[in-house]
């Protein structure tokens, strides 16, 4: 068991207001850590700090350290960090271009590929890994805006896979999807953890119990409890966790 991400006393503030309070947590390599908790408990802030997207916001400030393979991410070049830590947003956001171009956009900009045959192979592989290839292989050059929500979300996954990151962050990736699309996304997550380390924020407690190895419960900017998913769901140590997962929590 190797720790991929090591968060040490991380505190985050928006406009001096504390939204994450001295958080310490580990994410093990090739595991899925899911983060559950009510709205505004700081889950998104936590994720966006892991690839430093929150550092782009003016009102944001932070304290503490986050290590990715023993290296402090706050000392790293942001672009290199984001290449290693990909992020999937709650709403699927295809770029306004074709399916094909959505996949190759970042690898091209980052100079990862040049040869046309390599590019085609990359597109095919990424779409297959995101289980989207069969849906779209005949219309790779049509606009990505004209796909269903579930397909768009899988395209966004494929787009991240194309830059071959080490960690993938999911922020409520199924909140806008129907049950069948959700099942497909969950399926691909289980497939993905063989190669990647995953942090999954979800508002769906059942989803956490279905896919994750460990589960963390956040409440009002604090980490209340983190444990093996089975343990946490069967015998939570904290009363608040129990209330939340049994749905007795406001």
């Amino acid at each position: 068991m190797v720790n991929k991400i090591n968060v040490k006393k991380l505190s985050c503030y928006y406009n001096k207001k504390c939204v994450l309070n001295s958080l310490s947590i580990n994410v093990v390599k090739n595991e899925i850590l899911s983060v559950i908790g009510p709205a505004n408990s700081g889950k998104t802030t936590f994720l966006r700090t892991l690839n430093r997207m929150s550092d782009l916001e003016v009102l944001f400030s932070r304290a503490g350290e986050v290590f990715l393979d023993e290296e402090n991410i706050f000392d790293m070049n942001m672009q290199f960090l984001r290449r290693r830590v990909g992020m999937l947003f709650a709403m699927p956001i295809p770029l306004p271009m074709s399916i094909y171009d959505n996949i190759v956009y970042a690898p091209k900009r980052l100079g990862l590929i040049n040869k046309k045959t390599d590019i085609d192979a990359l597109v095919e592989q990424s779409l297959k890994d995101a289980s989207l290839w069969d849906d779209v292989k005949d219309r790779l050059h049509t606009s990505a805006m004209r796909m269903s929500g579930g397909q768009q979300q899988r395209l966004c996954i494929a787009r991240i896979l194309a830059i071959n990151p080490e960690v993938i962050l999911f922020d409520e990736p199924c909140s806008g999807l129907d049950p069948i699309s959700t099942a497909k996304v969950e399926e691909s997550m289980l497939e993905l953890k063989k190669k990647y380390t995953i942090v999954l924020v979800t508002n769906n407690v059942k989803q956490a119990s279905r896919v994750s190895d460990k589960t963390a419960f956040f409440l009002m900017g604090k980490l209340i409890e983190v444990d093996k998913t089975d343990t946490l769901f069967i015998s939570p140590k904290e009363k608040q966790t129990e209330y939340y997962i049994t749905g007795r929590f406001g």
Binding site: N51, M53, L56, Q79, F80, L81, R82, R83, G86, M87, F89, M91, I93, L95, P96, Y105, A106, R109, L110, C156, R159, I160, I163
Partner: peptide
Amino acid sequence: SFREVSLSLGVSRWQTIRH
């Protein structure tokens, strides 16, 4: 959101603007 997506993929600010 388009800028955010591009930046989150490790693409630089200038390339995001340019492309």
